[in-house]
Design a protein around this nucleic acid. Structure first.
Lengths: 346, 346
DNA sequence: CTGTTAGCGCTTTCAA
DNA sequence: TTGAAAGCGCTAACAG
C-alpha cells in the first residue's frame, strides 16, 4: 500500500467564491445562505440557492471536514471481504453508517498480520472517525492498533478480537453456545463427537474448543477428537480432516464444525467414502451462511446473530465517536448463537 | 443518508507546526524534511524525522488532499454488497486500489434506484477520485450519474451498465456466452431447454435471453420457455419457476439458469418433485459462486471472469483518473465466460 | 539549505 | 442582515 500514486482532481469545481463573485456578495454570505442560516434574508438565500443549483455547486466535503475538523467516514477491517460472514457484516454496517451520514472504507487483511498493520497506518493517515475490526488469523496481539488510540480514533472489535486491547468489543458467546450445541448432540444420543476448528490463538476458536471440551465433559463422554486447521479454511481442509477422522480406530458419529467451508469439505469426503448422511454421521455447523440449507443434508447450524453484532458494533462506535473524553467508556457485549435445526442431525 | 451526524475529531493531533516550534525551525522546512526533499540537510532531516516519530506525528491526508487538490479514494457502487459476485469484486478492487495507495468506499443500492441516486450525490460531495458501478435492477437510465460527469469524476461501469451513458464499461460477453452454452447443451442432445432469467430492462439479462433464443434457433429447436423473475433473485423464485415449468404439457429436459440462487431453488424443487438430477433434467448455471460445486449435482457453470473484470475496470478507472482532458477516452471491454463442466450436465 | 508568504474551500468570530 | 479577516494543515513559489 504505497502512496506514490495519488491523483489530481481533474476539473475546477464551482466554489462559494464563484457564487459570491457572480452575485456580488461576500462568500461568507453565500456559505451562510447555503446552510440555511436564519440571519440571511429570504431574498438573498433564494438568489444564492438558485444560482448554486444552476451552476451545479456541491459543497466540498473534503474542505468541510478539513475546516471543521470533522470526519464523516469510518473504516472497516475484516480478514476477507468476500467471505460471506464478512460481506454480510459490511453490508449491515454500510447501511447503518450511511443512515448517519457516514461513509465506509473497507479494508481486508487477507488473514495477514503485515497487511493488517499497513492498513492501520493508512487508516491513521486518513483520519477516519472510527474503526470496526475483526483481526487476522496471524494476529497475536494488538500493538499495531495503538496508532489509532494515539490519534484518538475509536476502535471497536467484533468477533475476532485482540484480547490484550482495552477497547469495546462485540462478541459471540462461543463457549456457551458450543457447550449447548454439544449438549444438544449428546441429548440426541450422539456419543463420539469430533470437533473441526481453527487456530487456538484466536479467541473464537479457542472458546469454541473449550466449549466443546466442557460439553463432552458434562455429558460424561470419553471420545474427544479435534482437528485444528491452522490456516484459512478451505474445502480441502474439511475433506482431509474427515478422511483422517474416519481412518481412526474409533470413528465419530457426529461432526461439530466451526465453519461452513469445512462442513462442505466434510460432505464432499463423505460422498467419496460412501458415508450416509445423516444416518451414519450427524453434522452441526457454526455459520450463518445462506447456503447451509442447500447442502445435502441441509445443515443444522449455530447461527451467528450478524444483525445484532453489526448493530452493537456500530452503536458502540458511534458512542465512542460522540464522547469527548480521551478515555472512552469501554463496553463489551455478548450475543448468543441461535440453533437452527435442519436435516444434518436426527 | 442525511448528514446531520458528522463527528468532531476527538483529539489534537500533532502538526508540522508543533514540530517546527519544538525544533525552532520553520514548518515549511519540517514539511520538506518529512517528504525527503533533497535540499534539506541530512542533519535537519534526521532531527525532524526523529522528533516526528517520537511524538507520533502522522501526516493529515485530509489536509494533504485538500491542499493539493488530490484525491486518494475511489467509490464502488454495487447492488448488494453481500452477494458473492459483488463481494468478490469488492475484494479484488480493494486489493488493486490499495496497491496504488487508493482507499475504497463501498456503497450498495440494495437494488433500489432511489438509494443509488442518493449514493451518487454523497459521492459527488465526497469528491472521490473515481467511481466503479454496477447498477440496480430498478435503474432504467443514467441521468442520476450525470452529477459525476459534471464534477469530472471518472465513472466505469461493470457488468450491469447504463447503456445510455457514454462511459467506459467492462462487460461480460453475455450474448455470445449464452449462445455457446445453449449450443453446448444441444450438442449433448438436450432438446427442451428452459431459461430462467431476470428483468429484460437490464442489459445482462436481456443479452443472455437473446443469446438463449439465438442458440435455440441455431439448433433448429422449437421448445422455448423462459421465466423472467422481475425482482432480486431468491431461492423461492427458483422453486416456483421449476414448479411452473414442470407442470406444463411439455416438460424441459434442461434448465439454463442465470443465477446460482435460482439454480439452488430449482434443485430444491426437484428434490420435492422427485426429479432425478441430472438424469431427468440437466442444469447449466451462470455464476462464479464458490459453492456451485457443492450443490448436488455439482453445477456445470458459465463462470464470469471476475478477476479480469476487476482488473479491467480498475485499469480503465486509473486511466481516466490520470487523463487531463475533460473528455476522457471511452473504452468498452468485453470478457468471455468460461465453461466449467461438472455433473449437472451429462 | 532554510525562511517567508500565500492560499486551497470553507466557517466563524467580530464588526458594521 | 451582511462584510471583513483569520485560519484549519499543508505545500509551493520565491527569496535569501
Amino acid at each position: 500500500m504505497h502512496t506514490c500514486a495519488i491523483y489530481k482532481s481533474m476539473q475546477a469545481k464551482p466554489t462559494i467564491k464563484d457564487i459570491a463573485k457572480a452575485l456580488n456578495i461576500h462568500h461568507a454570505t453565500v456559505s451562510r445562505a447555503l446552510r440555511g442560516d436564519s440571519r440571511i434574508s429570504e431574498e438573498t438565500r433564494k438568489k444564492v440557492m438558485d444560482y448554486a443549483a444552476s451552476i451545479g455547486y456541491v459543497v466540498d466535503q473534503n474542505a468541510l471536514n478539513f475546516r471543521n475538523k470533522t470526519i464523516n467516514n469510518i473504516a472497516l477491517i475484516v480478514p476477507n471481504i468476500s467471505h460471506n460472514i464478512f460481506s454480510s457484516f459490511i453490508s449491515l454496517i454500510t447501511d447503518l453508517a450511511n443512515k448517519e451520514g457516514l461513509t465506509v472504507s473497507v479494508f481486508q487483511s487477507k488473514e495477514q498480520f503485515d497487511i493488517e498493520a499497513k492498513v492501520i497506518k493508512t487508516i491513521v493517515r486518513q483520519r477516519v472517525g472510527g474503526v470496526i475490526a475483526s483481526i487476522s488469523n496471524e494476529t497475536r496481539n494488538g500493538k499495531h492498533f495503538e496508532g489509532l488510540r494515539k490519534f484518538g480514533i475509536p476502535l471497536v472489535f467484533f468477533d475476532r478480537v485482540c484480547e490484550d486491547l482495552n477497547t469495546s468489543k462485540v462478541l459471540v458467546d462461543n463457549f456457551e453456545g458450543t457447550m449447548q450445541a454439544i449438549s444438544y448432540l449428546t441429548g440426541k444420543g450422539y456419543r463420539r463427537i469430533a470437533h473441526l476448528t481453527g487456530q487456538q490463538a484466536i479467541n473464537v476458536f479457542r472458546e469454541r474448543h473449550q466449549g466443546y471440551l466442557k460439553g463432552i465433559e458434562l455429558a460424561g463422554l470419553t471420545y474427544k477428537e479435534s482437528i485444528i486447521i491452522e490456516k484459512d479454511f478451505e474445502i480441502a481442509d474439511g475433506e482431509k480432516a474427515m478422511l483422517t477422522l474416519w481412518n481412526k480406530e474409533e470413528k465419530p458419529d457426529a461432526i461439530f464444525s466451526d465453519s461452513f467451508v469445512l462442513s462442505a469439505g466434510v460432505i464432499k469426503q463423505c460422498r467419496q467414502l460412501k458415508i450416509q448422511l445423516p444416518n451414519e454421521l450427524a453434522m452441526l455447523t457454526i455459520t450463518n451462511d445462506p447456503y447451509s440449507s442447500l447442502l445435502v443434508p441441509s445443515q443444522t447450524v449455530l447461527e451467528q446473530p450478524l444483525e445484532e453484532l453489526a448493530t452493537s458494533a456500530f452503536e458502540l462506535l458511534l458512542k465512542a465517536m460522540n464522547e469527548d473524553s480521551h478515555q472512552p467508556e469501554i463496553e463489551i457485549r455478548h450475543h448468543a448463537f441461535r440453533l437452527i435445526e435442519r436435516d444434518s442431525v436426527q
